[in-house]
Amino acid sequence: MKSISIKINGEPLALDVEEHWTLLYLLREHLALTGTKEGCGRGECGACTVIVDGKPINSCLVLAPEVDGCEITTIEGEMRNGRLSPLQEAFIEMGAIQCGFCTPGMVMSARALLMRNPDPSEDEIVEAICGNLCRCTGYEPIIRAIREAAKRERNHER
């Protein structure tokens, strides 16, 4: 067991973790944050994507003790003041969701992209979500949703 302190979706938290737990396991099994999904457990599918210290990572390939002191954002932290974020709205409107299993990871990758680049080109969007597999949508509507969300969020900030 190791004691770690993290900030998760804005809330500080101190807890004990087993050393071989992955961050994904910690989130799903011990913090009941089941929005983050497991699709492969080996970095290939992106369903487990969360944002750690501003960067999207595959939480299935990060150990829980490694995130001691880190700030973590999961899909559960994406809503703003109880309302859908423009990104979430765009995903719904543009048909970027079918079964929804890839959606949380996809939204996290997109969120991280918009944090580092509020005006991404189509190529940049594709690069940012290429590590997130989706078997349902054919990706096109997801790419469109992210572009639309970027526009709305930029306009909103102005």
Partner: peptide, 19 residues
């Protein structure tokens, strides 16, 4: 019309068996 299950899925609150 937008899919009726959109909000649950985009917020991570849609519950799948593994959850």
């Amino acid at each position: 019309v937008a899919r009726i299950d959109g909000i649950e899925k985009v917020t991570g609150s849609a519950t799948y068996t593994a959850d």
